[in-house]
Amino acid sequence: MDKVVRCKGICRVYADDAYPVQALDNVDFEVATGEFVSLAGPSGSGKSTLLNIIGGLDRPTSGSVYLGDVCLNQLDESELSDLRLYQMGFIFQDYNLIPVLNALENVEFTMQLQGVHPGERTERAMATLASLNLDGLAHRRPAELSGGQQQRVAIARAIVTKPKVLLADEPSANLDSKSTESLLALLRQLNQEQGVTIITATHDPLVMRYAGRRVLLVDGHIDIDDSDSIDNAH
């Protein structure tokens, strides 16, 4: 299977404080197209750091990151910006949506940055909202939506541009268990039916259960990766 994400020997050291912190320590990590991976691990183990490096939001201190054939290390600031815009989908823990735009406009936002034609934009945004059963809420602003609904709109925004990878850092942190379950069902459905590659970082055992592959980080290195066992089983 072709690998969409490849990390080789990633180290990330935060040296801005008095004590340097080694957030990632020589991590090798690959994700194949169509996988649903969950990064797990105690707080401070480096999950967010790894996710940010894969997403082109942060750079490793050493080691290299590839998205498909593109080496992220060689991209400059604005190329990384474009990479995030065209190739990545992001779901953040909270404050996902732009408060002054309604749900539909939020979903159109990244397409607008991409310069997609208005007619096509609205059509695609509505279709995506509809596929997530959100079409009734299209004209509501974030403040008029529940946390779960907001998170679903954020997912619509993240997938409408058909990104290579969908990155979700603690997507369920601010949701109750019922909303979390329907969110996870949605992510799994996107993964299985549309083949969207998903990487999440989470503490939530529920999220881990829905993922196809679990990777446990401890102190900045990969402790357990259950794809190994699957590979071994084959």
């Binding site: 604005s78 474009d82 404050y95 732009i98």
Partner: peptide
């Protein structure tokens, strides 16, 4: 700050 940071995270360029 958070909102503007998110713009950038989503791929809005600095100039924008």
């Amino acid at each position: 700050v958070r909102e503007l940071g998110m713009f950038r995270a989503l791929g809005m360029r600095r100039g924008a």
